[in-house]
Design a protein around this nucleic acid. Sequence first.
DNA 1: ACATGTGAAGCGCTTCACAGCG
DNA 2: CGCTGTGAAGCGCTTCACATGT
Lengths: 207, 207
Amino acid sequence: MVRRPVPRVTVQRLPVYLRCLESLPAGQQRVSSDELAELAGVLGAKIRKDLSYLGTHGTRGVGYDVEHLKHEIRIELGLTRDWAVVIVGIGNLGRALANYGGFGERRFRVVGIFDSDPLKVGRRVDGLTVEPMELLARAVTERNASIGIVATPAHAAQEVADALAAAGVRSILNFAPVVIKPPEGVEVRRVDLSTELQVLTFYLARS
Amino acid sequence: MVRRPVPRVTVQRLPVYLRCLESLPAGQQRVSSDELAELAGVLGAKIRKDLSYLGTHGTRGVGYDVEHLKHEIRIELGLTRDWAVVIVGIGNLGRALANYGGFGERRFRVVGIFDSDPLKVGRRVDGLTVEPMELLARAVTERNASIGIVATPAHAAQEVADALAAAGVRSILNFAPVVIKPPEGVEVRRVDLSTELQVLTFYLARS
DNA sequence: ACATGTGAAGCGCTTCACAGCG
DNA sequence: CGCTGTGAAGCGCTTCACATGT
């Protein structure tokens, strides 16, 4: 019960657990590890082990208090404060992300959208105006953005990531179909439609 | 050198390796594991181990033949034939996916786009017309779709996944922010913007 | 000389199984 | 009794280190 470091795989599951908890009926006060596991598509033992890293206390013979557990996970994930996000690359995907409603629910605020194409600069997307890349650095600083979303074509992604890092962004979510070399001190995660489809065809091709 | 089963993690990296190989200068004939590793952001030993599962043969002292290796990986991933894809849910994200250019390069063909909203049915998106859900089952069969993309709101995702499975789809890529219970015999993968952002804030919150 | 291919060691995560506690 | 919390075992992946082959 000492506070061991939280394994990366556990961190990746916590948002899922949180969402499952939020999907429970409004009146439900308690939940067992097996019940939550069913919703999350894992085994009960994994839920208990994962939650044990948070030092969370359920009640033996009873289960977990839903509200308390949600609160614990939110604290762990840093969701008790707002996070300012900038999006670079306002093509189809960037526009979809800018319009994505899910940001607000989780206290992510899109504070700037940027594109290098002069034809796109000035357009309005979901209440924001597309700004030129020249304004990125100042915007990140002044609006205190710590997360950058890269939705550019592959060839521009590394340069944009470096620019975001230089501007002070500490976390990058990369939607460009390319591996970015993480700038020093910056956490990069990749979301890659094309890769996911190819994993699916691997299994399709041999079944 | 017997053909052991390819580990899941290796399958997930093969598309990345393929993309890195394709990004090499046109004239380059050979590549070493360390060189490819640098591009892919991994260690050389991992490349060699991963490729060993394919029974691929590099040349000791020299490296891998680029064209041959690309071909081997494409075969392994089932990318030597076309795959028909249907997209369900034509909101911002679904529209962005329908417009996504990367499909064609990898031999994925979008053969149908569907939405339950009568106001969206009939609209044209990137050369396709949005069809009503009632036509999904027949379309999957007649157009021989094996992959379904779920881009609906969370509350509709399970139902849509089940409908896709019933229609004969064997692989589903789920963009809805919810865990889908995989229908019997169907491989489901999840792509989740909100989850990824929350993983980032976990690390932001403690640095 | 050089880079691959691979046993073996190391590491981290999953799952088991049950002690502990309400 | 029921469900959590957790050592311990099991499993799969990563990394090492070097024998192997050109």
